[in-house]
């Protein structure tokens, strides 16, 4: 991370925090929704984009964080409950990740699909802990003696997003982060280089789980309700779409992707309100989301980040790319992976 990228990110964070604080509750809501989704996408990108471990349990993991933080919050832990949620998620993430030490690629992905369904089932069943299908009503976070409002949440969430980005960017540049990349490219090579593959994977799961939990905790506090329906497989798909649209293996890309996936439906809906039928608006929204995913994967599989980089390169500004947080080492072009037949 260069000083320049740090300053750009800081300026952006402050800019968005101000937008969230000053433009009314609806904008505040959009700003913190994007910020929260971004934290989730960052965490998922660590796992999929950097370490190459495909998971479909992200939705449920975020749910674990939400319930963890919600329960701690209701017990009066205040802001510390965000940490509780994050730690819960990290532990569960580790548990989900354990099969990754034996399974690879596709088979591991399917095992995470199972984890997603089983965890979501547990949310519904563990009535004493989660209040079952009714959902856990979460007490508001107190700020200056009053429940925090949307504007304050916007600032808090943008702040936490900035911190998360900072921490993850640092980690990616250490040996821990480099180990992730090698494991992604080839476990065989990693072993040959003396990387402890099992350890790298465990670290990736812990790290990713922690931030997924943070994302969940923020969801719990901002929406004031943790209910199982919010953490179904659809959330996992949305999150994966974010990192694909933004760019696999790019932290900045995760944030752009999260913004895109969160705001696109709203934009389409506003435009669609000119249509006569309410059914159709929703259908178009969904359709656009599907088409977006397909088109990105077909035309620009490395996401908006790569697209932007290409455009800038054409303008001759390639040398001064201002997307500093890309994984600049490693080929970036990720080879056809072991699990697929050519």
């Amino acid at each position: 991370m260069t000083k320049r990228s740090f300053l750009v990110a800081l300026a952006l964070a402050i800019g968005f925090a101000v937008v969230g604080f000053e433009s009314g509750r609806f904008w505040a809501y959009l700003v913190y929704s994007v910020a929260i989704a971004s934290i989730g996408a960052l965490s998922l990108n660590i796992l999929i984009g950097y370490c190459g471990q495909i998971t479909f349990a992200q939705g449920a993991l975020i749910g674990v964080g939400a319930y963890g933080a919600g329960i701690a919050g209701n017990a009066g832990w205040g802001a510390a409950s965000l940490l509780v949620g994050a730690v819960c998620s990290a532990l569960v993430s580790l548990l989900i990740g354990l099969p990754a030490l034996r399974l690879r690629g596709l088979y591991f992905a399917i095992s995470t699909l199972a984890a997603q369904f089983i965890l979501n089932y547990l949310f519904k069943i563990l009535q004493p802990l989660t209040n079952g299908v009714s959902g856990l009503v979460v007490k508001p976070l107190m700020l200056f003696g009053r429940p925090a409002n949307d504007e304050q949440y916007a600032v808090i969430c943008v702040g936490l997003l900035f911190l998360s980005w900072l921490v993850l960017t640092r980690i990616i540049q250490t040996n821990v982060g480099r180990a992730f990349l090698v494991v992604r490219e080839s476990e065989l090579v990693a072993r040959g280089m003396g990387v402890d593959v099992a350890r790298a994977k465990i670290q990736a799961f812990l790290l990713s789980g922690f931030f997924a939990g943070l994302c969940g905790g923020l969801i719990a506090f901002t929406s004031r309700l943790a209910n199982p329906e919010a953490f179904e497989i659809g959330l996992s798909v949305d999150q994966t779409a974010m990192i694909i649209v933004g760019g696999l293996g790019s932290l900045g890309g995760s944030i752009i992707g999260a913004g895109f996936v969160t705001l696109l439906p709203e934009a389409i809906e506003r435009l669609g309100e000119l249509l006569p039928s309410a059914d159709l608006i929703s259908a178009f929204r969904e359709m656009a989301f599907g088409i977006l995913i397909i088109l990105f994967l077909l035309l620009e599989p490395r996401g908006i980040v790569a697209l932007a980089r290409r455009i800038f390169a054409r303008r001759g500004a390639a040398a001064r790319t201002n997307l500093p947080d890309r994984a600049s080492y490693g080929s970036g072009a990720i080879s056809a992976q072991n699990g697929r037949k050519a």
Partner: peptide, 19 residues
């Protein structure tokens, strides 16, 4: 920069459609 551009584009789309 791109973040801003995209956000601005979306904001315009939303604002234009908001009656």
């Amino acid at each position: 920069m791109k973040k801003l551009t995209i956000a601005a584009a979306l904001a315009c789309a939303i604002a234009a459609a908001a009656p």
